[in-house]
């Protein structure tokens, strides 16, 4: 037994420094609200901290918590939605598309973000969202059909 020499793989501080911005960006795309995105990422690290050394893949765990908590936020429909934010990219074409993305039903937008921003295959999206792959495929199909109609 050499437990005294066992060291954690990656320190949580390092992962926090390296991954925090990316996770906040992902949470922002999922929620459309910057401060909620920051809160979600902060809470994900707080959830990871006590079990850090036991996690098989800490980065995957963090991303999963962020996605799940963004979804939890959507389930609370009584929570007032933040005011629409002003144009963000200042490129009209992209801002218009972002506005249309934000109008999608929450679960459809989540699938679009994970597919086209995270570049995840449908099987991974289904696993992250705890959804059957067929349902994820259907949500993606509907979202793209809606976007095609509104952006054409």
């Amino acid at each position: 037994m050499s437990e005294l020499n066992t060291e954690p793989r990656a320190a949580i501080e390092d992962v926090y420094r390296d991954e925090r911005l990316g996770l906040i960006r992902l949470a922002f795309l999922l929620t459309g609200a910057r401060d909620q995105a920051e809160d979600i990422v902060q809470s994900a690290f707080e959830a990871a901290q006590p079990r850090w050394d036991e996690l098989d893949d800490p980065r995957a765990f963090l991303r999963r918590v962020v996605v799940n908590r963004a979804q939890d936020l959507h389930r609370r429909r009584y929570r007032p939605r933040p005011r629409p934010e002003p144009p963000v990219t200042h490129i009209p074409e992209l801002d218009e598309t972002w506005a249309e993305l934000r109008r999608l039903p929450d679960r459809q937008r989540a699938v679009v973000v994970l597919r086209f921003y995270e570049d995840l295959p449908l099987t991974d999206i289904a696993r992250l969202l705890d959804r059957p792959e067929g349902t994820v495929r259907s949500d993606l199909h509907r979202a793209l059909a809606q976007l095609r109609r509104t952006l054409a």
Partner: peptide, 19 residues
């Protein structure tokens, strides 16, 4: 075209979030 446009939009929007 739609796939490419969505990728470009999401990347541009995400990059507006800075720390």
């Amino acid at each position: 075209e739609l796939d490419d446009h969505l990728r470009r939009t999401l990347r541009a929007v995400a990059e507006t979030v800075t720390l």
